[in-house]
Amino acid sequence: MRHRTAGRRQIRNTAVELTGLGFGASVLGNLYRVTPAEDASAAVEAAWEAGIRYFDTAPHYGLGLSELRLGTALRQRPRTEYVVSSKVGRLLVPNEHPRGVDSEGFVVRDDLRRQWDFSREGVLRSIEATLDRMGLDRLDVVYLHDPDDHWEQAADEAMPALAELRDQGVIGAIGAGMNQSAMLARFLRETDADVVMLAGRYTLLDQSALDDVLPAAEELGKSVVAVGVFNSGLLSRDRPNEGMKYDYQDAPPPLVARARAIADVCAAHGTNLPRAAIAFPHTHPTIINVTLGMRTSEQVRQNVELHQQHIPDGLWDDLRTQGLIRPDVPGAGAGARSSTCL
């Protein structure tokens, strides 16, 4: 079934518009296990048929494999109808000492290796290589990728280089993507960033972004894309259990117990934990998109169905009352709207 795309949301102060649900293409780079090429193609096809028009990738994902596959899958689509984001900071260079398989979680050959580089030249080289791999002449959004240990070069060299490309029309919007929120707030406040990709810091289990990046985005009129909304898996099932992951580690028992308590409140409101986890980021007015990793067409269909489910307004109030989310989490108005369109 085709779904509406009219609910696109603009990255503030730019011409770039994102659908409320985005396609995260890290798994197309064989993250943790092989994704057959036919599954990758079918997943993008299913996302397109469902109305998803925002696709996110990076050179880091499978040493370029994700970009190659996504570019191939989108090649016959009208370029004006979709938005692609990629990232800079990990430049792919020849690997002088290959061991056969990539050591960073992607099941690919390691003929290339990643080299941290947030210099102006590195940014330009990285974008040129991405455009070549994807068969594109422009990117809609480019993020600095995990610049945690590289603030000075990222802020002083990489972001100005991206700003120049944005002004030239090669890029539509620029920003940074990280697993922390404090430095993302600095990028919004101290650089020309339009948007940030916030991983795991505004979820049902972690609302720390309310202390820094979300207020900065609201104050400055900038935008946020939310990823990692399942916190590596703990929020991805109706009933969390021991042994599930939280931020890439085994979830500690107290956190599992809290996730179960949230799941119980969700069930009392006629919904479930994964649905609420996808809807929750949209409660904040600066968050314009939730992007999920999708490996197969079936995962796409499941995620679209979860995203479109109505979340009762009273759920967030009950979670606040029971101390399961912070009392300063905004109301549910934006979240209720997000469930009706992609």
Rank of each mutant, 00 (worst) to 15 (best):
L234H: 09
M244Q: 15
E152Q: 14
K222G: 03
L205E: 06
E218Y: 02
P254A: 03
D167Q: 15
V170Y: 12
R258V: 00
S181Y: 08
G221R: 13
E164Q: 15
L188E: 09
P254V: 03
D140F: 01
D132E: 12
D206M: 07
Q207H: 12
A161V: 08
L184T: 13
G243H: 08
G200Q: 06
G221Q: 12
S181Q: 14
E164K: 15
G177A: 10
A268I: 00
G200L: 02
D146N: 14
A259V: 12
Q207Y: 06
V195Y: 11
L131I: 10
L235T: 09
Y143F: 15
V227W: 04
A176Y: 07
V142T: 05
L205D: 08
D250I: 07
E190Q: 15
D149W: 12
Y143A: 05
D206F: 06
V227P: 01
L220W: 11
L136S: 04
A173K: 13
S181P: 10
A182V: 12
A158R: 13
I262M: 02
A217Q: 08
R239Q: 10
A155C: 13
A154N: 07
G233C: 05
V229C: 10
A176W: 02
E157N: 02
Q180C: 04
L204A: 06
R189F: 00
R201F: 03
M159W: 06
E219Y: 00
H150T: 01
L165V: 09
Y143C: 04
V256R: 01
M178N: 12
L165Y: 09
V227N: 04
D132W: 08
P254F: 03
F187A: 12
R186Y: 01
G135Q: 04
M178H: 14
K245Y: 09
H145N: 10
A226F: 02
S181V: 01
A154C: 03
M183H: 09
Q207P: 00
G135P: 05
R258C: 03
